[in-house]
Measured scan of single mutants.
Amino acid sequence: MDVFMKGLSKAKEGVVAAAEKTKQGVAEAAGKTKEGVLYVGSKTKEGVVHGVATVAEKTKEQVTNVGGAVVTGVTAVAQKTVEGAGSIAAATGFVKKDQLGKNEEGAPQEGILEDMPVDPDNEAYEMPSEEGYQDYEPEA
């Protein structure tokens, strides 16, 4: 019985440690998101679009440190934060509304985080759909 109880105690310690790591990862992701939003706020009209992409990228980098179902929630929060940063930029006159959601080359930025393969159960990952990809044929 002692062996059984000791095993359960060790398992509990492992769960607590994993929860603490997840909590730490979420806190880091939130900190990076805040950094990115402050970065966007300090940019001029020309830099705002690039700044919004930076927020998304920093958040995406930190999301990889967070495991399990938390990833889905962090990704949703990050996307809403990026959308909010863009709205703030438009409201303050840093950028025109028609410039939001495009990178410096004018290509749409939507789907940055949505296409990231995420499995809350950590069982399997699927690649994003290939609808947006084109076949590449090298020139002879």
Rank of each mutant, 00 (worst) to 15 (best):
P120G: 10
V118I: 04
S87W: 15
P117F: 04
L8C: 01
A56I: 14
V48T: 02
D135S: 03
V63L: 11
K96E: 11
F94T: 04
E123M: 12
E130T: 05
G7A: 04
E131H: 09
V26N: 00
T81L: 11
A89I: 12
A90P: 03
V16F: 13
H50P: 01
V26L: 08
E104M: 14
K60A: 14
D135F: 09
V52C: 09
V48A: 04
P120W: 05
T54V: 15
G132S: 03
V48N: 00
G106F: 12
P138D: 06
G67K: 05
A17H: 06
A89R: 07
A107W: 09
S9T: 02
S42L: 13
V77F: 07
V82R: 04
G73Q: 11
H50A: 13
E57L: 08
V70Y: 03
A85G: 06
P117D: 06
G47I: 09
L8R: 00
E105H: 01
K6A: 09
E110K: 05
E35R: 10
K21Y: 15
T33Y: 15
E83H: 07
Q99L: 14
A76H: 11
F94Q: 06
T72I: 07
K102I: 09
D98S: 14
A76Q: 08
G132P: 04
A78E: 01
Y133T: 07
P108E: 14
T33W: 14
K6W: 03
K80G: 04
V3K: 02
K23Y: 15
E35F: 14
T81W: 05
L100I: 07
T81E: 02
T22S: 06
V15K: 00
A124Y: 14
D135P: 04
Q99Y: 12
A85E: 02
T64A: 09
N103M: 12
V74C: 11
E130W: 10
V82A: 11
M1R: 00
K96A: 12
V40H: 02
K80V: 08
E114R: 12
V82H: 03
A76S: 07
E130V: 15
A17N: 08
T64Y: 13
M116G: 03
G132F: 12
G36F: 09
K80Y: 14
V48Y: 05
V55C: 07
G93K: 04
G14P: 01
A76I: 14
V55E: 00
V40N: 00
G25S: 10
L100H: 03
V49C: 14
E126Q: 03
K10W: 06
A76K: 13
A124D: 14
P128L: 11
G68K: 10
F4E: 00
N103L: 09
T92L: 13
D98L: 12
P138V: 09
A29H: 02
G132N: 14
P128G: 05
L113Q: 15
Y125D: 11
T54L: 14
G47A: 15
S9L: 10
M5R: 14
V49D: 01
A91L: 13
A11T: 04
K34M: 03
M5L: 00
E130P: 11
V48Q: 00
V70I: 10
A140E: 07
T64G: 08
K97W: 15
E20W: 07
T59L: 05
G84T: 13
K34G: 02
A76C: 10
A78N: 01
E83T: 08
G67Y: 11
T54F: 13
A19L: 15
A85S: 04
L100Y: 02
G25P: 00
N65W: 14
A11F: 03
Y39D: 01
A29N: 01
E137A: 08
N65K: 06
K10P: 00
K43M: 15
E13Q: 06
N103E: 06
T75K: 13
P120I: 07
K45F: 04
M127L: 09
Q62W: 06
V71E: 02
K45R: 13
E20N: 11
S129G: 08
V16C: 11
G93C: 03
P117C: 12
T33M: 15
K58T: 07
V26E: 00
G93I: 10
K12R: 13
P138I: 04
S129N: 04
V66C: 06
Y125L: 08
M5F: 01
D115K: 09
A30S: 03
A85W: 14
V70G: 01
T72Q: 11
T22A: 14
E139Q: 05
S129D: 10
L8W: 12
E126L: 05
V63K: 01
S87Y: 06
T64M: 06
E57I: 10
E46L: 03
Q99S: 10
E46P: 02
T54E: 02
V71L: 10
E110A: 10
L38C: 08
E57V: 04
E104A: 06
K23L: 13
K23A: 04
V49T: 10
A29R: 02
M1Q: 00
Y39R: 08
A11V: 15
V55N: 00
K43T: 03
A69S: 06
P117N: 09
K32I: 14
V48R: 01
T44W: 14
T33P: 00
G84K: 11
M127T: 05
P138T: 06
E61Q: 09
D98M: 05
L8F: 02
Q79I: 08
P128A: 09
D135M: 09
E130I: 06
Y125W: 07
G73L: 13
I88G: 04
V95T: 11
A29P: 00
M127Y: 12
E13L: 01
A56F: 15
G36D: 02
G14A: 15
T54S: 08
V55H: 01
A89C: 10
A27R: 06
K80E: 02
E110P: 12
V63H: 01
A89W: 15
A53S: 12
A85M: 14
D121S: 11
E46Q: 07
G106N: 04
A91N: 07
V55S: 01
M1L: 00
V66M: 12
L100V: 12
V71I: 15
A53T: 09
K45L: 14
K10E: 01
S42C: 08
T64L: 09
V37D: 00
N65P: 02
G31Q: 12
V40E: 00
K45N: 02
A27C: 12
P120D: 06
E46R: 05
V82Y: 11
